[in-house]
Design a protein around this nucleic acid. Structure first.
Lengths: 138, 138
DNA sequence: TTAGGTGCAAAGGATTTGCGGAATT
DNA sequence: AATTCCGCAAATCCTTTGCACCTAA
């Protein structure tokens, strides 16, 4: 409801990637330097609790966020750049259901994350959002 | 090679669940109180680097470990009981590789978690020795 | 003895929070 | 003016590390 909060919400809705708090802070400051990282943390948490934001833990020690509205999909994380590619795959959805069934369960939800290295011929490698210091969980 | 290290290794190999460092520390102290949590951290890291341990990030801020010897597998979390069931599926492994390849990546690692509800008639439910404390950050 | 391991406590990085001041209604 | 929010800095939480001492080989 306040200026800062609105600003952060805007930065988030404009984000096409999965920024971490530091990155959000950078983008927010670029638009209005009267904001502190504490507020970013607070707002991001608030939005997550309201279900507007989704928090991901792609390893590397920081949480990364994305608007919930993106719909069901999964992530492939480029372990070199930290960049996240979204994808969805029907075969996988079916397989997941089948695996659950085989174990005697009805699938209620699932989470799939792939970690990969870019294969040679791939001309695209724009500025990695995060990915630096720290270990990579996977 | 030293006593503490052997002790931690033992605690780990006896673990049927996915304990975090604090829990490992507790179990280790119970057997020999001449050990510090720093050593647990150091050993756990060492073992992970050697590929003997696998670190999981189920959310909740702490890393949780399990011996690699369990073989590649994934987790299905019973959303009613919180119990974690392990499973592996070759079709999935293949599919994951294929998805990554389709996106131009070489698969380096992956994480799959299913959340399910137990189906009615299923005579099999032999309460696994381990598998408890199932936080899932999701 | 020597290299490497351990404990303790301090250091670090990410995230949270207490508190007085500032903005919103 | 009242309520809620913000910024700052201190505090937490998990994990790593510097340093002096100790232990396995």
């Amino acid at each position: 409801m306040t200026g800062q909060r609105r600003l952060i919400a805007r930065v988030l809705s404009e984000a096409e990637d999965h920024p971490d708090v530091e990155e959000l802070y950078r983008r927010a400051i670029a638009l209005d330097n009267r904001i502190s990282i504490a507020t970013v943390y607070r707002t991001v948490r608030l939005l997550e609790e309201k279900g507007i934001l989704e928090r991901h833990d792609f390893g590397g020690g920081r949480a990364r966020y994305e608007p919930t509205e993106h719909g069901p999909h999964h992530h492939l994380i480029d372990i070199d750049s930290g960049k996240v590619i979204e994808f969805s795959d029907e075969d996988f959805e079916a397989l997941a259901r089948s695996i659950a069934a085989k174990l005697g369960f009805v699938l209620v939800g699932h989470r799939l994350e792939l970690f990969g290295k870019r294969k040679a011929a791939e001309p695209e490698t724009p500025a990695p959002p995060g990915a630096r210091r720290g270990r990579t969980g996977a």
